[in-house]
Design a protein around this nucleic acid. Structure first.
Length: 309
DNA sequence: ATGGTGGCACCGCCA
């Protein structure tokens, strides 16, 4: 681990000691921001509807929508209460979208590795003018990387590493702690960085998603100014998964999961995240996605700036 | 030790 990666990790640990936690009282000013790899939006529209009725997120980042922009079910999502919709779609593969109750002031997407893959979408939205500055939200779908963990023989793994490298260069939270940037980065990052992010560290050490090089690359991105918010709220010694393979006979019983989906915040925003929730039972819904939704609750104070670290 | 499932496209690809 590089020195800066170490610092990023210590930021996460330092926050834990402050017990920024779910004990915090809701006052109606909370914003809930969710991420979910839906594995085809058209196939699972009913599940999205169920999720938003049960959890009422204000903003929802979707990955693997697997459709072109014009096929995205915008009208249905508007009826679910999301008038603001940003889509970066692609026929058959990948594709990301952000649907929101809060208006966007900016929408954009970045290309990675000189490919036309739809793997990124960024929006800026305000949180009640004057109370908290605008938040930049990145929705990312990192390439899975194929099966062979060798970038020489497996171009998909090489692409994954190159993608992570570009992320480190181009998507920064806050490089120094004094930087008051308020940013969120969430999505399917396809890397489970901690030993407790996989069902067996020993058995997955050479399996794509948990190899040392990917974990190092992910830590290097984090070192550019991100806090792993899920691990602020859920201790790193505790097992935590967001994905269970379709191939298991009984996903729940065998419990061979991995934490591939992440919620990161820039340091000055991380302190305003009052809760992280994983909707594990969504994996057991009828015809489910292999990923579950994650929700971050952002508690807006009355102060001009959020609580700092 | 291997193969197991799923979505979309189009008869294989990607996950």
């Amino acid at each position: 681990m590089t020195e800066s990666a170490m610092k990023a990790w210590h930021r996460t640990c330092a926050m834990q000691k402050e017990e920024v936690g779910p004990a915090e009282k809701k006052d109606g000013k909370d914003i809930k921001i969710a991420t979910w790899n839906i594995n085809s939006i058209r196939k699972r529209l009913a599940l999205v509807n169920r999720f938003v009725r049960e959890e009422t997120p204000d903003v929802l980042c979707l990955q693997e929508i697997k459709c072109e922009n014009k096929e995205f079910p915008e009208e249905a999502l508007r009826r679910m209460g999301y008038p603001y919709i940003a889509v970066n779609g692609q026929k058959g593969y990948h594709g990301v979208a952000i649907v929101s109750r809060l208006p966007f002031t900016q929408i954009g997407s970045q290309r990675f590795c000189n490919k036309d893959d739809a793997r990124h979408l960024q929006v800026v939205f305000g949180c009640e003018a004057g109370k908290l500055s605008d938040i930049t939200l990145h929705n990312v779908y990192v390439p899975a990387g194929g099966d062979d963990p060798d970038p020489v023989s497996n171009p998909k793994f090489a692409h994954k590493l190159a993608f992570l490298k570009e992320m480190q260069e181009r998507i920064k939270g806050a490089t120094i702690l004094e930087d008051k940037t308020l940013s969120l980065l969430m999505g399917d990052l396809n890397v489970a960085p901690l030993e407790t992010d996989v069902w067996s560290h020993r058995q997955l050490i050479n399996v794509v998603s948990h190899t040392p090089i990917e974990c190092a690359y992910l830590n290097n991105i984090m070192a550019e100014g991100w806090v792993d918010v899920a691990r602020v709220h859920i201790p790193p010694k505790q097992k935590l998964y967001t994905w269970w393979s379709y191939r298991a006979k009984n996903w729940e019983l065998s419990d061979r999961g991995r934490r591939l989906d992440h919620i990161w915040a820039s340091p000055h925003l991380a302190g305003s995240i009052s809760a992280i929730k994983l909707i594990k039972h969504a994996r057991g819904w009828e015809s489910p996605s292999d990923h579950i939704p994650l929700i971050a609750t952002l508690t807006r104070g009355d102060r001009q700036t959020p609580r700092s670290l």
